[in-house]
Protein backbone atom coordinates (compact mmCIF):
# COMPACT_ATOMS: atom_id res chain seq x y z
CA UNK A 1 0.00 0.00 0.00
CA UNK A 2 1.10 3.52 -0.75
CA UNK A 3 0.07 6.65 1.06
CA UNK A 4 -0.85 9.46 -1.31
CA UNK A 5 -1.76 13.06 -0.72
CA UNK A 6 -3.23 15.29 -3.38
CA UNK A 7 -5.48 18.26 -3.84
CA UNK A 8 -8.94 17.47 -5.20
CA UNK A 9 -11.28 20.33 -6.03
CA UNK A 10 -9.18 22.62 -3.89
CA UNK A 11 -9.12 20.40 -0.80
CA UNK A 12 -6.17 18.37 0.38
CA UNK A 13 -7.05 14.69 0.67
CA UNK A 14 -5.05 11.59 1.44
CA UNK A 15 -5.46 7.84 1.45
CA UNK A 16 -3.83 4.42 1.29
CA UNK A 17 -3.86 2.87 -2.18
CA UNK A 18 -2.67 -0.37 -3.70
CA UNK A 19 -0.15 -0.06 -6.46
CA UNK A 20 -2.78 -1.14 -8.96
CA UNK A 21 -5.51 1.23 -7.79
CA UNK A 22 -6.66 3.50 -10.59
CA UNK A 23 -7.17 7.19 -9.95
CA UNK A 24 -10.82 6.88 -10.99
CA UNK A 25 -11.37 4.19 -8.36
CA UNK A 26 -9.68 6.32 -5.73
CA UNK A 27 -11.97 9.21 -6.62
CA UNK A 28 -15.14 7.10 -6.73
CA UNK A 29 -14.53 4.55 -4.01
CA UNK A 30 -12.29 6.27 -1.48
CA UNK A 31 -13.37 9.89 -1.86
CA UNK A 32 -16.95 8.98 -2.93
CA UNK A 33 -16.75 11.55 -5.71
CA UNK A 34 -19.11 9.54 -7.89
CA UNK A 35 -19.64 12.22 -10.52
CA UNK A 36 -16.68 10.83 -12.45
CA UNK A 37 -17.94 7.75 -14.32
CA UNK A 38 -16.48 4.57 -15.77
CA UNK A 39 -17.93 3.64 -19.17
CA UNK A 40 -15.30 1.28 -20.57
CA UNK A 41 -12.12 -0.57 -19.75
CA UNK A 42 -10.02 0.35 -22.76
CA UNK A 43 -9.52 4.11 -22.26
CA UNK A 44 -11.87 4.85 -25.13
CA UNK A 45 -15.07 6.40 -23.78
CA UNK A 46 -13.82 9.41 -21.82
CA UNK A 47 -16.57 9.29 -19.16
CA UNK A 48 -13.83 9.40 -16.51
CA UNK A 49 -12.15 12.56 -17.86
CA UNK A 50 -10.89 14.87 -15.13
CA UNK A 51 -8.30 17.60 -14.97
CA UNK A 52 -4.94 16.76 -13.43
CA UNK A 53 -2.53 19.64 -13.03
CA UNK A 54 -4.68 21.57 -15.46
CA UNK A 55 -4.68 18.97 -18.22
CA UNK A 56 -7.60 16.73 -19.22
CA UNK A 57 -6.78 13.10 -18.48
CA UNK A 58 -8.74 9.88 -18.45
CA UNK A 59 -8.62 8.94 -14.80
CA UNK A 60 -9.00 5.23 -15.71
CA UNK A 61 -5.55 5.46 -17.26
CA UNK A 62 -3.73 7.01 -14.33
CA UNK A 63 -2.68 5.08 -11.24
CA UNK A 64 -3.76 6.71 -8.01
CA UNK A 65 -0.14 6.56 -6.87
CA UNK A 66 0.86 8.68 -9.87
CA UNK A 67 -1.50 11.40 -8.69
CA UNK A 68 0.42 11.85 -5.45
CA UNK A 69 1.01 15.56 -5.07
CA UNK A 70 -1.19 16.46 -8.03
CA UNK A 71 -3.97 19.00 -8.29
CA UNK A 72 -7.11 17.32 -9.52
CA UNK A 73 -10.43 18.84 -10.56
CA UNK A 74 -13.51 16.69 -11.05
CA UNK A 75 -17.03 17.57 -12.17
CA UNK A 76 -17.93 18.20 -8.53
CA UNK A 77 -15.45 21.07 -8.54
CA UNK A 78 -16.77 22.84 -11.64
CA UNK A 79 -19.73 24.85 -10.39
CA UNK A 80 -19.49 28.54 -9.52
CA UNK A 81 -18.62 29.45 -5.94
CA UNK A 82 -22.32 29.96 -5.14
CA UNK A 83 -23.11 26.46 -6.37
CA UNK A 84 -24.74 27.56 -9.61
CA UNK A 85 -23.75 25.92 -12.89
CA UNK A 86 -20.72 27.50 -14.53
CA UNK A 87 -20.78 28.78 -18.10
CA UNK A 88 -19.99 25.43 -19.70
CA UNK A 89 -22.39 23.47 -17.49
CA UNK A 90 -25.12 26.04 -18.10
CA UNK A 91 -24.59 25.86 -21.86
CA UNK A 92 -25.03 22.08 -21.76
CA UNK A 93 -28.38 22.57 -20.04
CA UNK A 94 -29.46 25.47 -22.26
CA UNK A 95 -28.68 23.58 -25.48
CA UNK A 96 -29.80 20.14 -24.33
CA UNK A 97 -26.30 18.78 -24.62
CA UNK A 98 -27.05 15.80 -22.40
CA UNK A 99 -29.68 13.13 -22.05
CA UNK A 100 -28.86 10.22 -19.73
CA UNK A 101 -26.05 12.25 -18.16
CA UNK A 102 -23.54 9.42 -17.92
CA UNK A 103 -20.94 10.72 -20.39
CA UNK A 104 -21.71 14.30 -19.37
CA UNK A 105 -19.09 14.86 -16.63
CA UNK A 106 -16.35 13.71 -19.00
CA UNK A 107 -17.76 15.82 -21.80
CA UNK A 108 -17.85 18.94 -19.64
CA UNK A 109 -14.27 18.36 -18.47
CA UNK A 110 -13.03 17.78 -22.02
CA UNK A 111 -14.96 20.76 -23.37
CA UNK A 112 -13.58 23.01 -20.65
CA UNK A 113 -10.06 21.93 -21.51
CA UNK A 114 -10.73 22.60 -25.18
CA UNK A 115 -11.72 26.20 -24.57
CA UNK A 116 -8.59 26.75 -22.52
CA UNK A 117 -6.53 25.66 -25.51
CA UNK A 118 -8.74 27.16 -28.21
CA UNK A 119 -11.18 29.83 -26.99
CA UNK A 120 -13.27 29.97 -30.20
CA UNK A 121 -13.22 26.52 -31.74
CA UNK A 122 -14.99 25.78 -35.00
CA UNK A 123 -17.50 22.92 -35.30
CA UNK A 124 -14.80 20.76 -36.86
CA UNK A 125 -12.30 21.57 -34.13
CA UNK A 126 -14.84 20.69 -31.44
CA UNK A 127 -15.69 17.39 -33.10
CA UNK A 128 -12.03 16.55 -33.49
CA UNK A 129 -11.23 17.39 -29.87
CA UNK A 130 -14.06 15.20 -28.57
CA UNK A 131 -12.80 12.08 -30.38
CA UNK A 132 -12.01 10.49 -27.03
CA UNK A 133 -15.42 11.09 -25.47
CA UNK A 134 -18.26 8.82 -26.57
CA UNK A 135 -21.89 9.84 -26.16
CA UNK A 136 -24.60 7.35 -27.13
CA UNK A 137 -27.62 9.63 -26.55
CA UNK A 138 -27.24 12.99 -28.23
CA UNK A 139 -25.62 12.31 -31.60
CA UNK A 140 -23.23 15.10 -30.47
CA UNK A 141 -25.30 17.76 -32.29
CA UNK A 142 -26.31 19.64 -29.17
CA UNK A 143 -22.98 19.05 -27.43
CA UNK A 144 -21.26 20.86 -30.28
CA UNK A 145 -23.77 23.69 -30.03
CA UNK A 146 -23.39 23.92 -26.26
CA UNK A 147 -19.61 24.24 -26.53
CA UNK A 148 -19.88 26.87 -29.25
CA UNK A 149 -22.34 28.80 -27.10
CA UNK A 150 -20.10 28.50 -24.03
CA UNK A 151 -17.28 29.96 -26.09
CA UNK A 152 -19.40 33.00 -26.83
CA UNK A 153 -20.15 32.13 -30.46
CA UNK A 154 -23.57 32.65 -31.98
CA UNK A 155 -25.62 29.49 -32.03
CA UNK A 156 -29.15 28.85 -33.25
CA UNK A 157 -31.41 28.45 -30.24
CA UNK A 158 -32.78 25.01 -29.44
CA UNK A 159 -35.83 23.83 -31.32
CA UNK A 160 -35.50 26.61 -33.88
CA UNK A 161 -33.69 24.88 -36.72
Amino acid sequence: MNRIELKVNGKTVSGEVEGRTLLVDFLRQTLRLTGTHVGCDTSQCGACTIHMNGMPVKSCSVLAAEADGAEVTTIEGMANADGSLNTMQQAFQDFHGLQCGFCTPGMVMAATALLRENPKPSEGEIRHYLEGNICRCTGYHNIVKAIQAASGQDVTPVAAE
Binding site: L33, T34, T74, I75, E76, F92, Q93, G101, V108
Partner: peptide, 21 residues
Protein backbone atom coordinates in the same frame (compact mmCIF):
# COMPACT_ATOMS: atom_id res chain seq x y z
CA UNK B 1 -42.58 24.65 -24.48
CA UNK B 2 -38.90 23.81 -24.83
CA UNK B 3 -38.55 23.80 -21.07
CA UNK B 4 -34.99 23.24 -19.90
CA UNK B 5 -34.53 19.90 -18.20
CA UNK B 6 -34.58 19.95 -14.43
CA UNK B 7 -32.64 16.66 -14.22
CA UNK B 8 -29.68 18.29 -15.94
CA UNK B 9 -28.58 20.18 -12.86
CA UNK B 10 -27.67 17.02 -10.97
CA UNK B 11 -26.13 15.37 -14.02
CA UNK B 12 -24.01 18.43 -14.74
CA UNK B 13 -22.79 18.82 -11.21
CA UNK B 14 -21.88 15.19 -10.58
CA UNK B 15 -24.66 14.61 -8.07
CA UNK B 16 -26.76 12.18 -10.08
CA UNK B 17 -27.15 8.80 -8.45
CA UNK B 18 -26.51 5.92 -10.80
CA UNK B 19 -26.61 2.36 -9.53
CA UNK B 20 -22.84 2.07 -9.29
CA UNK B 21 -22.84 5.16 -7.07
Amino acid sequence: ASTKRREDVRFLSGTGQYTDD
